[in-house]
Write a protein that binds this DNA or RNA. Structure first.
Length: 407
DNA sequence: GTTGAGCGTT
């Protein structure tokens, strides 16, 4: 473990915050010192520009693989646009706007475990303690009008949404769970590290691409589909670098290529592949990769702070007892969307941990994975998103992205 | 009239 220096803004007095055993910094650790912070940045000594720190699933990763965090001072990033300095380059504006839209936008939140008696008014009343409520609804049985025990809530500010997701909620006498719903896309989505590069010519080698695009940030993978298909994929270490390039034209070795978002792999598989992919994860070779969550402990699927009378002994015998910890997944920063198909058929843990047969354990892992020794749970997506991401970079679904980017 | 993991008639 090491301490890194973080200040709220450039020039402010830094505070030393501890990192985890895997050298990452937990968002929760950062937020303990800087409430409301959602990102980290630092000034790149070479280019004198600010550079974002890679973040994923509620944790930050050091800018350089080898040298770790280094001695420099990092600055906080806050969700409010007006906190941004005005030294942004014009060319970054689009990407930043895009990022704010995709990452800091409020989404409907699902509220699970509501008492039957809770009404839309009392639901709204509860959440208005946190900030402006734009929508509050209870899902009811159409015939009887009885509540189904869950509802949806929407806030006017992303900061409020973050607070709500990080807080436990006692609503009308019952502890309820607030999450980003997984039924719909468009929820706070993690910024992908991989970009699609169109209009490639056949003589553009992966080295050419790597050489050219490396000036924007460290590249972890270049994938050129064979046979030649006039496009390729570049994966950056820093998703913000990837994002900042999207929508741009670049001239590589005299060739004008176009960079755009790489479509999620899952969609392409379902849409364009005729061969069943269900068994695919069993064949994927998982390689160690920087940023890999350090998988150490498991958590039961039960909501961690649920009162004893509310849970019904679903704790797995192999899993540790419950703790009282906030819902970090729900912070919305790393809540990547995933389809049912991905969850069921691309479960890489079935390979990595040899749990390929025990569905009960796998479902437990799907719900709770303890990352590193900080004891902070990252719910639902951490390990899987990371793993899917690294896997996607390798076999990168050329058939996938080709069509989905032609929107 | 009962229930308690989930994912939204528009």
């Amino acid at each position: 473990m090491e301490f890194i220096q973080v200040s709220e803004e450039e020039g402010d007095e830094p505070i030393e915050v501890p990192t985890e055993d895997d050298n990452s910094l937990l968002l929760s650790t950062l937020q303990a010192q800087f409430p409301g912070a959602c990102g980290l940045k630092y000034r790149n000594e070479e280019t004198k520009t600010l550079r974002g720190v890679r973040s994923n699933e509620g944790r930050f990763f050091p800018p350089a693989r080898e040298s770790g965090w280094g001695p420099m001072v990092y600055f906080c990033v806050f969700p409010k646009e007006n906190k941004r300095k005005s030294d942004d380059h014009l060319e970054n504006f689009t990407a930043k706007t895009k990022r704010i839209e995709t990452r800091l936008r409020c989404t409907d939140l699902i509220v699970l475990g509501l008492p039957w008696k809770t009404t839309e008014d009392s639901l709204r009343e509860h959440f208005e303690e946190f900030g402006e409520v734009l929508m509050a609804q209870i899902k009811k049985d159409i015939k009887s009008g009885q509540s189904k025990g869950f509802g949806f809530i929407r806030f006017g500010s992303y900061e409020v949404q973050m607070n709500v997701l990080a807080t436990r909620h006692l609503i009308d006498g019952r502890w309820c769970e607030v999450k980003v719903p997984n039924s719909k896309q468009g929820s706070a989505q993690q910024v992908p590290c991989k970009v699609f590069v169109g209009r490639c010519t056949e003589d553009l080698s992966s080295n050419d691409l790597k050489e050219y695009f490396s000036k924007y940030g460290e590249i972890t993978d270049v994938f050129i589909p064979r046979p030649f298909r006039a496009f390729s994929f570049i994966t950056f270490y820093d998703p913000e670098v990837a994002q900042s390039l999207c929508g741009e034209d670049h001239i590589v070795k005299g060739v004008s290529v176009h960079v755009s978002n790489a479509a999620p792999k899952s969609e392409t598989i379902n849409r364009h592949s005729s061969r069943p992919q269900q068994q695919q994860p069993q064949q994927i070779q998982i390689q160690p990769m920087r940023g890999a969550p350090n998988y150490q402990r498991l958590r039961p699927k039960n909501f961690p702070w649920q009162e004893p009378h509310q849970h019904h002994s679903q704790d797995h015998p192999l899993l540790p007892p419950q703790l009282d910890l906030p819902n970090l997944q729900a912070l919305g920063i790393g809540a990547g969307e995933r389809t049912q198909t991905q969850q069921q058929s691309q479960n890489p843990l079935s390979v990595g941990l040899n749990f390929n047969t025990n569905r009960s354990i796998i479902s437990g892992l799907n719900q709770w994975s303890f990352l590193s020794s900080g004891g902070q749970p990252t719910k639902n997506n951490g390990f899987f998103n990371w793993m899917n991401q690294s896997v996607a970079g390798k076999d990168g679904g050329p058939s996938v992205v080709e069509t989905t980017t032609q929107t």
